[in-house]
């Protein structure tokens, strides 16, 4: 399979007051389509920054990022938002669901940006919830669900618009072992059976075992590439 993501000479510098902090420097990386990649490294190593850049949440200071042949480092805020809506699903450590909406309505959120009818949105959300095994909890609000269930709703929200790429930032960081394994198993299924390319940041070596590859970052540089 070809590369879905191609990163060349990537650097990211943040300004903290008068000080400039170079979080990432000279990153070169290819991620194949259909890959499941784990990014590991100590706190402050730049893994979340790299994930944000891959997901189009942030723009690089230097270097290029191509996803599916599209130079996302060259996109402005508006086109980048559209690109994210069409191509990327996000899973966060703390689920980041809308507390006042039901699971169904949370999953429907990305579809509000499409031209789908209300009935089609409902149907697609129901399919996504079924895929993560929560079709019977569709009407429940996040506060009525366990942490593991909330993360599965977040995964359903991430896949409902059928993106090519899933970026997951510590998806099991707030879960007990059993729930973490359920979530990781689900991600592996999405990768293997549905062909989703997944980039996951994690601190947990056990979580990284679910990935096909693990990359280590330290002080903003890729230090090692290991086969799972």
């Amino acid at each position: 399979m070809g590369n879905l993501i191609e990163i060349r000479d990537l650097a990211k510098v943040y300004a903290r007051g008068k000080q400039k902090v170079e979080v990432l420097h000279h990153i070169d990386l290819n991620i194949a389509e259909g890959d499941f990649l784990a990014l590991m490294g100590p706190s402050g190593s730049g893994k979340t920054t790299l994930l944000n850049l891959i997901g189009g949440l942030d723009t690089p200071t230097a270097g290029t990022i191509s996803v599916g042949g599209q130079r996302i480092d060259q996109l402005g805020a508006g086109p980048l938002a559209k690109w994210r809506a069409a191509n990327v699903g996000f899973v966060f450590q703390f689920y980041n669901l809308m507390p006042m909406l039901s699971a169904q309505r949370n999953v429907e959120l990305p579809l509000l940006l499409t031209k789908l009818s209300s009935a089609q949105r409902k149907q697609n959300a129901a399919i996504a919830l079924k895929l993560v095994g929560l079709d019977e909890r569709a009407s429940h609000k996040p506060s009525e669900l366990s942490g593991g269930q909330q993360q599965r709703v977040a995964i359903a929200r991430a896949i409902v618009s059928d993106p090519t790429l899933l970026v997951c930032d510590e998806p099991t960081g707030d879960l007990d072992r059993q729930s973490a394994e359920d979530v990781l198993g689900l991600l592996r299924t999405l990768n293997r059976e549905h062909g989703k390319t997944i980039v996951m940041v994690t601190h947990d070596p056990k979580a990284a075992e679910y990935a096909n590859h693990t990359l280590h970052l330290d002080k903003g540089t890729l230090v090692e590439q290991a086969l799972a």
Binding site: G55, G78, A81, R84, A85, N96, P110, L113, R157
Partner: peptide, 15 residues
């Protein structure tokens, strides 16, 4: 704030 950031993350434009 974080909920609005999530909306932007999943593709809602600033406008």
């Amino acid at each position: 704030t974080s909920e609005l950031a999530v909306l932007k993350t999943i593709g809602f434009s600033s406008q």
